[in-house]
Write a protein that binds this DNA or RNA. Structure first.
Lengths: 126, 126
DNA sequence: TATATTATTGCAAATGATTTGCAATATGTC
DNA sequence: GACATATTGCAAATCATTTGCAATAATATA
């Protein structure tokens, strides 16, 4: 009997490399462009889906109808500042335990994750 | 010379009524369904666009690829708890000045707005 | 009140992101 | 290296949203 498992293939390596290259959330199309079309968009989508499932990337949405993905470096979750003018993104980390505790007290939901994004103007665009 | 202006038409009244009926963010399709197809989807999209522009509704995304809209009651902005199982949504308000101040200090972005959403399981689905 | 002027609507078709089916290919195991 | 299975690329489908345009509705003015 042959073992089954997830394979670390050439396309997946490239997509991982691409994600690693960016330090901000990127769309499937951006990865595709960065990889010069070497990998089919479909495979990029499927790989991202997989990476999301095994929890090595995080998905974000900035409101323009495309999903963006980002490697979850050292398992630390962070938030984003998005420039409404040029689209530039800055990462931001913060202690948010207080906030989370507050919400957990207020609500009877069992909270698993949260998303916090800020929108405004980057230094260049102000 | 004829004056120009925004018209408060029948379709717009209905869409407003629909938004008012829901106490959570709803998609264009949900509004359309609620209004029993009386108003064309296109017009719903255009009206939502307009309402967003004149700042009477807020747009949210819960990560399933649809935009949702919600009336901005008494100008108070709030956040959401989304059940990952049944899709139910609970509104939540909180004092977040501390948080905002912190971010403003940490970053050189000029922050205009932010979105904060929580995901987990509602009481029924736990 | 009728008419003129401009805004808005509905329909059909276009677009853009993402997904699905499937045969061809690459991987890892024995 | 041969085999079993996972993965890929391509074409086509799907889903949300947008656009063009001629028909219609709303409002100001005669």
């Amino acid at each position: 009997m042959t073992k089954i498992g997830i394979r670390y293939t050439k396309p997946r390596k490239l997509i991982f490399k691409a994600l690693n290259h960016f330090s901000k959330p990127v769309s499937a199309a951006e990865i595709n462009f960065y990889l010069k079309n070497k990998i089919d968009l479909t495979s990029i989508y499927r790989t991202l889906e997989l990476m999301k499932k095994i929890n090595i990337i995080e998905e974000t949405e900035f409101g323009d109808g495309k999903k963006r993905y980002e490697l979850m470096k050292n398992n630390k979750h962070h938030h984003h500042l998005v420039c409404e003018n040029c689209g530039d993104v800055e990462n931001i980390e913060m202690k948010e335990d207080n906030l989370l505790d507050k919400v957990k007290n207020k609500s009877s939901f069992l909270i698993k994750e949260h998303k916090l994004e800020f929108f405004g103007l980057c230094p260049n665009c102000q």
